[in-house]
Design a protein around this nucleic acid. Structure first.
Lengths: 176, 176
DNA sequence: TCAAAGCATCTTGACCGGCGAGATTGTCGG
DNA sequence: CCGACAATCTCGCCGGTCAAGATGCTTTGA
């Protein structure tokens, strides 16, 4: 079970480290994705629905409720898909629509109780596992990890935009 | 754009660090996923196809060609989906089927030239971006990152199995 | 001031394709 | 010959894209 670590020189110890870390990251990503998939299936939704629910939750907790349009940007979904998605989540009682009183074109998405409970149920055990791991690292070490991950995150984000720009087929942009 | 970092106490500086790292990881995962999606779309396949191609490539480079069954395990796909998937990839000239001479039930999947080229084209720029980031870290720092990611990876893997075991609906197992 | 054009946001409907479930075919081990 | 196993086939569902439409804000120009 290798990855693009395979395409490096493994004689050099630093190259070896690089490929190990690369593998770690990929395995983490894939498995994290599978966790989401399994959890979603367990509760009668699909992976997209769960991502959406999390986005709605995040936005709401940040005090800045999300709209279907912005949700579509974040999930890289077309507007039609978003409507169907929101329909599903609303029908299942996870979120509800609220029209903006100022600009009545807009629809704000809010977590209903079931949705909030589900998000907590998803994150709570994940969070405690994470805490367990982090407890085995010093503050300085965690700072290094943070610096590294922040840079990797920015880098892959740039790369994503570059790949998307390669052909103007889906000029979606995440607002940040 | 927060995440389950939201569900932590942010007064404690260590808790703050924890939630920052958690956010980094999630953003990385999501964006990495989007990179795959965009790249795949650019080449007329979907995300699953690309994952499969990578798995076939990895197995082949490891000297242990993969079978449709094991591929389905890795991608968490049903056997029917795998057949369709392999059909698509074979029709597109990315891989080819080879029956095992010993056990003629088994089919080995091998990368065709187009598939190998595509995989390289996917990983090469990603690898150089990664190298750029890593160049800004010392050996010791990278060692810390590796230790951290290895533990996180193992942890999320355990969690994945726990969630999957919650209901025996899709008792898929990655062979490791 | 106000009507009309223009833009933004969401929704609808038609269509397509991936995925899962179950039955089927071919193959190995006893 | 008989179970166990691997892959394939067939079918239906569901989520996705796309294009068009409905609604409401905003700007413009007499």
């Amino acid at each position: 079970m290798a990855s693009h670590g395979m395409y490096r020189r493994r004689d050099d110890p630093r190259g070896r480290m690089a490929s190990d870390i690369t593998n770690d990251l990929r395995r983490y990503s894939v498995d994290a994705q599978h966790v989401g998939h399994a959890f979603a299936a367990l509760h009668g939704l699909n992976a997209t629905d769960l991502h959406a629910l999390i986005a709605v939750m995040d936005a709401e907790l940040a005090g800045d409720p999300i709209t279907p349009g912005r949700l579509g940007e974040q999930l890289n979904l077309s507007s039609g898909s978003v409507t169907a998605l929101v329909d599903r989540l609303e029908r299942a009682g996870h979120i509800r629509r609220d029209r903006d009183t100022a600009d009545r074109r807009k629809v704000f998405l809010h977590c209903a109780d079931r949705g909030a409970a589900l998000a907590m149920e998803f994150f709570q055990p994940l969070g405690s596992r994470t805490d367990q791991v982090m407890a085995r690292f010093s503050d300085d070490e965690l700072a290094v990890v943070h610096r590294f991950m922040a840079e990797m995150s920015a880098s892959v984000r740039e790369h994503r935009d570059a790949v998307r720009a390669a052909r103007p087929e889906s000029p979606r942009r995440t607002t940040d």
